[in-house]
Each structure stands twice: as C-alpha cells, then as structure tokens.
Design a protein around this nucleic acid. Structure first.
Lengths: 163, 163
DNA sequence: CCGAAATAGTCAGTGCCCTGAGTAATCGGC
DNA sequence: GCCGATTACTCAGGGCACTGACTATTTCGG
C-alpha cells in the first residue's frame, strides 16, 4: 500500500480548485465567455492597444494559447486586431464597443461569483488564501526564468520606463 | 478605467498556480506521465480493481476525461482493463507490473517536487494553504451536487457563513 | 417476464494549455 | 548595405476538462 494522499499534493488541489471555479463560472457568469477570455478583455480595458504577446504576459498565457483565445474573441466581434504600422510583426489589439460592454457586464457577475466561491472563508482567511497562492505561483514562475543579472547591478540597466 | 485586479480573483490565481505546477512537474517529475495520470495510478495502487467511473470519482475527473486518461495509460501498458463478469457495463482496472514500478518511481520524484514547489511557505503556512484550498474546492463541489442526504442527520444546513 | 429507468462507457464538439518547428519582420554589428 | 540574431506570430501535435447525445447493460416496478 504505497499510495500517497493526494490532499497534500498542491498540484492536485490546484486542479480541483480550478475545476470547481470553472463550474461556478459557467453557471454564474457566462457560458459563452470563459475566465481566460475575460482576463484578456480586462487586460485590454486597462491598456488598450497592447500587442498579442504582451497581453499573454499580462494574463499568464503563452504565445500559442493567447493566439487561440484572441482569435475566438475576434470571431465574436469583441476585439479588433490591426498590424502595427511601426512594427510589421505585431498585431495591436483593441476592444470593440461590444467587447467593452461585455467586459462591464461580466465584471459585475464575476464579483458576485467570487463572493460565493470564497464564502467558506472569513475575510482574514481570504487574504491569506490570496497571498499564499500568489507566493507559490510567483516563486515557481521565477524558477522558470533563470536569467536575471548576477545580483550585482540588478537595477542599473533595467528598463526604467516599463511602468 | 473599469479594469479589475486579477490578483484578487481566485479563478485566475488557481489557473496560474496550476500552470506553475505543470511546469515544475514537467521538469522535475516526468515528461511522459502527467499529474492526472499519476493520480489515476495512485488510486489504483490504493484500490486495485476499481472501475473507471469510481477512479474518476476518486481523482476528480468526469467520465469523458477519465476515459481518455485511462486509454493513454493502457496504451503505455501501465494498466489492464477487463470487463466485470458480474456487471457487463463496467471495466475493472488493475495496474501492470510496469504501472506499479512507474508509480513507485514517480512517488519519490513527486515528493521532491512538492518540497520545491512549497518551499516559499513555512510548514505552518503549508498547512493553511492546503486547508483553505480544500475548503473552497469542497464547498464549490457541494454546490454542484444539490443535497442528496435523506434528511438523516445533516449539518449542511448549519452553514457557517458567519464563520 | 417485460418494459422503463438508471448506470457505465463511448463519441463528437469546444476550449484551455504547453512544446517544438516554421515564417515574416525588425534590429544590430560590421 | 548585408547577414545573422532576435522577435511576433502561426501551425501541428499531445494532453486535460467539460457538455450533450448515444449505446449497451443492468435493475426495478408492475
């Protein structure tokens, strides 16, 4: 009986958490627009005119996935995609009026859903919940990008205009 | 600027957490066997001879997804699938020697990976991390299955929303 | 015993998520 | 100006995850 207890495996818990969220989203927010799609809309509300790659970076999606998501949003007429005249490799993205409207509508529903989703936790626990997950996710993402200068002159040459 | 802050959205955090885990699993555990596949192997180590549906229930996968995962494990020769002579609808699943060996090997690596993954948290924080995620996931799953208890002695109604 | 309901599994369709390979445009050094 | 490196995006391919419709088998009511 060498079986392990999956309830102490963060990966398994993360998967279950996401499934639970998916379910609730589907019933309380939208059957059309998914959570990652909403994240893209949201990124473009905050920063209209971003290119595809940067949007992916903002919401945490790789180049292939972000392309698919954007293509679906484009088909639904929620955003426009135009070549950057300054850089012919890029596509600049911008929400349509419909996209903006959709974002507004879903923002309200999403807030309600989050309340229901987090109801089992007290306000204090919710803060801890966010903080711990974020620490783990950030750290793991850090492992992926080794790069980073040798700690010496960490800030010296960093891009000071990145906001 | 009606954009929201995704770092307070549990769904977004859950997705990022899972992605981070996926990455680490791929580099530290296996590129062949995925985390859900390992969960299935583990369930069959604990309870050999389970049928497909029950395995899905144990690891949290629906009937379609579990069918795919099991088919892949079968193709790799890690488990056998035989009709239940008692009930012709069921397939009974059992690990092969190779499947058992694979599970043993991955168990070790998975433990190492979990350590790295959770390294940003203290031991106490790790417990909280597990507990909070599990509470949220369990509660959301509860919403899906509307009250099946036959009014026996159910404390579900004493919903502790006031904490 | 027989037909309806329930159950286990399959299949088609949609969407997310990654890697690796390939294309087109830009940038940098000489 | 030219060539190689970098960068933005596309495409093929594999895997996870869900729903809804379908088949086969068992179970249950009458």
């Amino acid at each position: 009986m060498a079986a392990v207890d999956l309830t102490t495996h963060p990966g398994h818990l993360a998967r279950r958490l996401q499934q639970a969220h998916y379910l609730l989203w589907n019933t309380m927010v939208s059957e059309e627009i998914t959570s990652p799609q909403f994240a893209v809309l949201n990124a473009l509300v905050a920063e209209p005119g971003l290119d595809q790659r940067t949007v992916g970076e903002r919401v945490g999606l790789d180049r292939s996935t972000i392309a698919e998501v954007i293509s679906r949003l484009g088909r639904r007429g929620l955003l426009d995609k135009v070549r950057d005249p300054q850089d012919g490799r890029r596509f600049l993205l911008r929400l349509t009026d419909d996209g903006l409207r959709t974002h507004r509508k879903l923002t309200v529903r999403t807030a309600r859903m989050n309340q229901v989703f987090l109801a089992p936790l007290s306000a204090a626990e919710q803060s801890v919940f966010f903080e711990l997950i974020q620490r783990v996710a950030d750290a793991a993402e850090g492992l992926r990008n080794p790069a980073e200068p040798p700690a010496e002159q960490r800030q010296a040459f960093t891009n000071n205009t990145h906001t």
